[in-house]
Design a protein around this nucleic acid. Sequence first.
DNA 1: AAATAAGCGTGATCTATATCACATCAAACC
DNA 2: GGTTTGATGTGATATAGATCACGCTTATTT
Lengths: 188, 188
Amino acid sequence: MEDLLRQQIEKIVKLTDEEFAFVLTHFTQRQFKKHQYVVQGGNAAPNDYFVLKGLLKSFYLDESGKMHILQFAMEDWWISDPQAYHNKTLATLNIDCLEDTSTMYISIDNREKLCADLKKMEYFFMKKTTAGYIALQRRILSLMSQKADERYHQFISLYPSLLQRLPKALVASYLGISRETLSRISAV
Amino acid sequence: MEDLLRQQIEKIVKLTDEEFAFVLTHFTQRQFKKHQYVVQGGNAAPNDYFVLKGLLKSFYLDESGKMHILQFAMEDWWISDPQAYHNKTLATLNIDCLEDTSTMYISIDNREKLCADLKKMEYFFMKKTTAGYIALQRRILSLMSQKADERYHQFISLYPSLLQRLPKALVASYLGISRETLSRISAV
DNA sequence: AAATAAGCGTGATCTATATCACATCAAACC
DNA sequence: GGTTTGATGTGATATAGATCACGCTTATTT
C-alpha cells in the first residue's frame, strides 16, 4: 500500500529500498471515516496527508458561514492547510472526508528532518510545490477570465473520474458558483 | 545594489561572502525601460527576475483580448512566467514594465545548478515557493468569497505603497473587476 | 418500514457587476 | 505650444449569476 507513495516519489527521484524505508519512518498511517474531520479551523494542523484511498475536501467557511472549497484530494493526492502546516499556526481551513479514507501523513517537523537528511526528498517536495503553484495560478486565471459554464466544462475534462464521486453542489462550490447555476449548465 | 538580493536571501539562510559571490555568478543584470516587454506570450521565458528597482506586471490575454493581471512586482519581488520557467515551455503570460526597471535574473538552468551545488539555496527557493503557494491560495479564497469592494479594501491595506504607483485600471484588472466598478468604490 | 436527510432540477425574482457612452483633466509627445 | 494619449469619474442600461422557494427522488438512519 505504501507502494503508491513510493511510485509517486520515484516519478521525480529514484530511491533505493533503504532510502525508501528511511522515508517511511517519517510517515504515519491513519484511517478516517466518511464525514470525519481531519483538520478543523482554529486547531493546529501540523500534518500533510497523502491519500492512499478515499476522498477528502479542504474548505474555508466565510463570516456568513458559506463554504468555499479549495481542494479535493483522492488517491495519490496530498492535502493539508498549507499555511497552518508550513508556518506552524492554527488552521483557518477545514478538511473532512467525503468517503472512508486511508492516509499516510508526515508532520512538518518530520518533513524538515527528512529534507535535511535526504536532499533528494527536498528536491521532490520542491517539484511538488512548484507544480502546485503553477496549478493555483491557472485556477486564478480561470476564476478571472472564464464564465461559470466554461469553468465547469474545464473541470469535467480535467477531472472526469473525480466528478463521478462528487455531489454537484460540491463541484459548484469548488468552481465558485451556486449549485442552482451549475445545475442549469448543460454537461455537454 | 546586489545587496538587496543578499538581504532577501539572508532573511532565510545565512551566507558567507564567498557563498554569496558564488550565488551571484549565477545571476545576470539587466535593465528595461518603461513599456518594454520582458516576457512575451509564445516565446521562451527561461528567466526568473528579481527586481532591484522599478515596477512590472505579468498578465494573461484571453481569447477576447482582455487583459488579466496575475502579479505586480516592485523592488525586492520576483517575477516570471512560472509554468514556462519551470517546465521549459513557451510563455502563456506576458510581462512588461510599468516603470524603468533594473533586475537581476537567474535562468532555470543556472538555478538548477545553483541548487545542486549549494543546498542552502534550494532551501531558500523552497521557502520562497511555499510562501508564494500560500499567497495564491489566499487570493483564490478572496476571489471566491469576497465582493469587489472588500477585495479592493484588502488590496489597499495589503499594498499601500504599490497602490500609489499603479493606475486604478490595473488594480481593477488584478482584482478581477472592471475599472468603472472600482472607480465607484469609496477608497475608505 | 417508516422517517429523515441528501441530492438534484427548475421557476421566479433580485442584485452586483459588466458594458456602453461621455466628459474632464493631466501627462506625454511632436 | 498645441495635440494626441492616458487616467479617472459617472450616468444609463444590460446580464450573469445569486438567492429564494418548491417538488421530486434516492440514500441513510432508526
